[in-house]
């Protein structure tokens, strides 16, 4: 009989209507992300605040999108003067974290970093500040 399948479909809809809702109330409720989540990059520092990075340049050469830029100290080549990550270009592939021989880099669970300016997406990981106004940042409608 024509229409039986339609009625069955309606029945399914009504059955599902009674089930508990699965909507995530983001941003009112923060999602629980697994520990493996690949979000924004961060660097480990010791208690004295010295970064774990030894400026070996492995991550800079390994990055497929040229996201990382390291400047070495000329007198002490094992100390990074600056470690900049252009998150606007980053594809969050995790190659840098995987390659780092000193396990200095890691991913945080932080993903809420939308900005008005592209230049605000450039982060300095060594002194932990946001490198506002640096690089080839481009103005977006404000």
């Amino acid at each position: 009989m024509f229409g039986q399948g339609l009625l069955k479909g309606l029945g399914i809809t009504f059955q599902r209507l009674r089930r508990p809702t699965e909507t995530q109330l983001y941003p009112y409720q923060q999602p629980v992300l697994p520990a493996t989540s690949r979000m924004f990059l961060a660097m480990y520092h010791d208690e004295a605040g010295v970064p774990a990075c030894k400026a070996c340049m492995t991550c800079q050469t390994g990055c497929p999108d040229h996201v990382i830029r390291i400047e070495k100290d000329t007198e002490n080549p094992k100390v990074p003067l600056s470690f900049t990550v252009n998150s606007g270009r980053c594809t969050f592939c995790g190659i840098c974290v995987e390659l780092c021989p000193f396990s200095a880099l890691h991913f945080t669970g932080d993903f809420e970093r939308a900005t008005y300016l592209k230049s605000d997406l450039i982060y300095k990981l060594v002194d932990g500040s946001r490198a506002t106004g640096e690089g080839e940042g481009e103005r977006h409608g404000r």
């Binding site: 992300l33 697994p34 493996t36 592939c93 995790g94 190659i95």
Partner: peptide
């Protein structure tokens, strides 16, 4: 996928 690879779309 996210629990294993760390990403929902681009797994690598």
């Amino acid at each position: 996928f996210e629990a294993v690879t760390g990403a929902r779309m681009m797994y690598n």
